[in-house]
Design a protein around this nucleic acid. Structure first.
Length: 212
DNA sequence: GACCAGGCACATC
DNA sequence: GATGTGCATGGT
């Protein structure tokens, strides 16, 4: 099938703009990106809600809190010990490197920022690109398991494609526009959740007509 | 009671 | 470089 822009158009027409990322601030977005690693969003919502209730969803509080306290609050998001370390490492870096100012983070050129993020423990390619796109507004396409499934199922890529291959494919096929990258990734996750999860409703999928 | 979820690091060969 | 495993809760 060739035209990935057509995929986006179908999803947009069917579901409307997704208005991602679901967060009240860039900092909340970045914490959410770590919390959602291999985890259902419902658990992340509870974790975020717990952090807000305790008034600790800010760099200073998260950096200084007892790890056990953070772990208890983010428990519903799973992997709470790992994620506590990742969140505190990220938050301390954010404070030391940028004094907790998102605008300073935005001033770093895209490639340098991506390398810095990837060098942090617990930040891999998807989390890095999510932060770059949704918190810093860089035009970088986010690849996740849903994107892989779609690209593979629709014959764009083979079974063994790497993250960077898929990212390059998406970016070659699409106009380099941040709002498009933002909403297209959101649409892919949305349609994937609804039609590709357990008891997959493949027959009703809006993208079915585009199958090879 | 399996199986999976908007990954990532690390160990081993 | 490729492959395997631990991390953990909560919903189907």
């Amino acid at each position: 099938m060739g035209d990935l822009e057509a995929y986006y158009q179908i999803l947009l027409d069917r579901f409307g703009h997704q208005n991602w990322w679901p967060a009240e601030s860039p900092f909340e977005m970045m914490i959410g990106a770590i919390l959602t690693q291999n985890t259902a969003w419902t658990g992340v919502e509870k974790a975020i809600s717990n952090l807000k209730k305790e008034n600790v969803l800010n760099p200073r509080s998260l950096a200084n809190l007892e790890p056990e306290k953070v772990a208890a609050l983010i428990r519903p998001a799973g992997y709470f010990n790992q994620k506590t370390k990742r969140i505190q490492a990220f938050t301390r870096w954010f404070l030391e490197r940028f004094e907790g100012k998102i605008e300073w983070m935005q001033d770093v050129p895209f490639l340098e920022m991506r390398e810095e993020l990837l060098a942090l423990n617990g930040i891999g390619p998807e989390t890095a690109d999510s932060i770059l796109l949704y918190a810093l507004k860089h035009t970088t396409f986010v690849i996740d398991t849903y994107t892989y499934r779609m690209l593979h199922r629709h014959g764009f890529i083979g079974e063994e494609s790497s993250y960077e291959e898929m990212k390059n494919l998406m970016e070659e096929q699409l106009p380099k526009e941040e709002p498009l990258y933002n909403d297209f990734h959101a649409q892919i996750v949305n349609v994937g959740k609804e039609y590709c999860r357990k008891k997959p409703k493949c027959e009703e999928c809006p993208l079915k007509s585009l199958l090879p």
